[in-house]
Amino acid sequence: MGVIQRVVKPRTKRGKRILLKKQPKIVENTKHCVFIPGRKSSLSVSNCMKDLLKLKKPDAVMLTQKNDILPFDDAVQIEKLLQKHDSSLFIFSSHNKKRPNNLVLGRTYDQHILDMFELGIESYKGCSEFKGLSEISAGVKPVLIFLGEQFDSDQQLKRLRNLFVDMFQRQPLKQIRPNGIEHVISITAVDNKILFRSYRTILSKTTLKTPRVELKEVGPSVDFVVRRDHMASPDLFKTACKRPNVKGKKIKSVRRDGFGSKLGRLHMTKQDVNSLQTRKMKGLKKTFAEKKLKRKSDADKNGPVVKKPKVAPATQTKKLKKFSKKGRKLKGGQV
């Protein structure tokens, strides 16, 4: 390409922050999903998109305009759309004679398409037919259940399972409230069909510690058939799956004792007891006359106010070096 690549330099702090946000990070933010309506759609496809959007909600946007895109012929437009929204997942809907009620699920890596799966909707039951999805609190992490040994034996379905996990897992969590598990998504592979179901959990107390789970279907309930697919080569997939080596910086001279309290070792300069600030009291406050007297005596002693160097330059640099070796000066008492 003959176009000169320009180095984009942000003009404002806000612009800088936005660019910084888009840059690759070691610990990534949650993947966002863009719902792209295609050239034509049917009622069931558009309803299905809306329902899936409900499942994804805080991390997804639905585009309102129709897009003349054929993902399997030219994926560049989709890549551009995703780049614009700084997201890496997409669900594309289309409907035509050859492939009616079509959904394309896909994801990108480094702004290029990694995987794409075309799923045809065989039968569909929306959330409105079940009711109860609204009772699930927004943004809660769902439990994902995959049934069927086809997911293990078939390479295509194995990758599709990976995509489904990527699509619906939400952000990875460090902690969780076991009683707060509310939402279950179950995906079953049976007879060349993918059955997508979503449930709400009802935990009932038992005499034991663990409760008993009951499920209530909340929708959407969709039966998919897999049509076309585009899978990344094993090499590319492997590089995309590369895990960062997250080793925290070793914290020096801080430890914890058996009781869980934090202990630290401090390096401090010698304390001057004479100039120590003790409890402030009104009675101990200096009067104006006293202050003036002190200032006068100081001026007599030291002469002009200009501060002269106390040490020769050679010793100065030495002192500087020593300081930098020891590291940051710590403040305060116990850490």
């Binding site: 690759p24 990108t108 890596y109 990976n162 996990v165 990527d166 590089t239 590369k242």
Partner: peptide
């Protein structure tokens, strides 16, 4: 820690 490996969104910095 999650064991199931998922692809990253962007390459490692």
């Amino acid at each position: 820690e999650p064991r199931y490996n998922l692809p990253r969104e962007k390459p490692l910095p």
